[in-house]
Design a protein around this nucleic acid. Sequence first.
DNA 1: CACTTGTCCTGTCATGCCGTCAGCTTACCG
DNA 2: CGGTAAGCTGACGGCATGACAGGACAAGTG
Lengths: 215, 215
Amino acid sequence: MTGQVRTVDGRVAGRRGQATRQKLLDCLSEMLSSSPYRDVKVIDVARRAGTSPATFYQYFPDVEGAVLELAEEMAAESGGLTALVEGRSWAGRAGWQTAQELVDGFLEFWRRHDAILRVVDLGAAEGDKRFYKIRMKVLNAVNTSLADSVAELQSKGRIDKDVNPGAVAGALVAMLAAVASHQKGFSSWGVKQAELKPNLALLVHLGVTGRKPTK
Amino acid sequence: MTGQVRTVDGRVAGRRGQATRQKLLDCLSEMLSSSPYRDVKVIDVARRAGTSPATFYQYFPDVEGAVLELAEEMAAESGGLTALVEGRSWAGRAGWQTAQELVDGFLEFWRRHDAILRVVDLGAAEGDKRFYKIRMKVLNAVNTSLADSVAELQSKGRIDKDVNPGAVAGALVAMLAAVASHQKGFSSWGVKQAELKPNLALLVHLGVTGRKPTK
DNA sequence: CACTTGTCCTGTCATGCCGTCAGCTTACCG
DNA sequence: CGGTAAGCTGACGGCATGACAGGACAAGTG
């Protein structure tokens, strides 16, 4: 129901047009990976795509508009993250495995989309509702399932009543996102990639179940 | 040892010069709070400070240079965060209080400097070593103390040997930073500010000590 | 094959910000 | 009061932005 892809001036884009549009998006994506967001200019993206700035403005209102498009593509993919939590057991050894796979999958997703996620994070932190909504969509893919798991354990009396499942899940997800964004930062604390993951999994397990995992 | 404040062209700045410089920094700080980083222009900052763009370039190489200055001011204040962890007990009720005060103090600090911290975070995530170093300095104020606490408990055999204190502390600090940056995000998950803090404190306590707090 | 039609791209232009310099004003000091 | 250094700005070439009109191109039509 998204309707057809349209140019800024209202025409519907045909096959060739969509191709250029996509090429512009791809090049923008590359630029985001290789240079600071603040320095990404329309003219550079256009040049890299072998076209002119005017063409860019035919498909996007500005750089931010195109970035939003990329972000939405990324958010559409984020649904797959749900599988990392939904229907998984948090009991015993299975619980430890769930935690490990969640951490692994999450970090991998973030690594794959780190450039665009940086920008989304910034936009959201700056209070831009559009970015904020996209960030929400990505995190929700994990968050609601995680909160449900906590709530379920809580209803069985295995977690204190005054724990707020949404808050705990949200904080854990935020932690994963933050660590993923700054993975390099840990190496200068003398923490290696490989060591990081099990420790994150430990924290996730502790947060969700309130207990240490049985390994 | 920092020597005197100098203009870009090498002159030493006198009283008046320093005042203008500071005014520019103040105005830049305001702009960062009120508009997206990408849209902060030299000319706007200069106008707001009642001076000309040329004057701005006398004191800073570019917007980023001035932002770094602001970030360093902020980092200098971050030493106070250490007091939130250093020499605190993690045992029994005192431990619960330590966790709560850490969360409280950390969120407060982040709230007070949110605009500049957003930019520092972005710069660090983009791999800029200067921003990265500043972020490190701020987080280190809490991180090393926290890691020490974990290591100490570990040496007493109260925490598994395969836990990496640096990784756990880093992850917890990253969590606090991320949650602080996106506090508003939680409200749309139906989590209120007041509920958030104790749940964060719980996670911190669990992470550091491996046990639920005694309240 | 010429012609038409609608899509697609770009040359060009006015506007505005960037970053620099020469030169003017202001403050300080002997 | 004159000299010197600090402080500020007008002005300029250069580049990005964003709008438009018109040219290029593919596909269908007689």
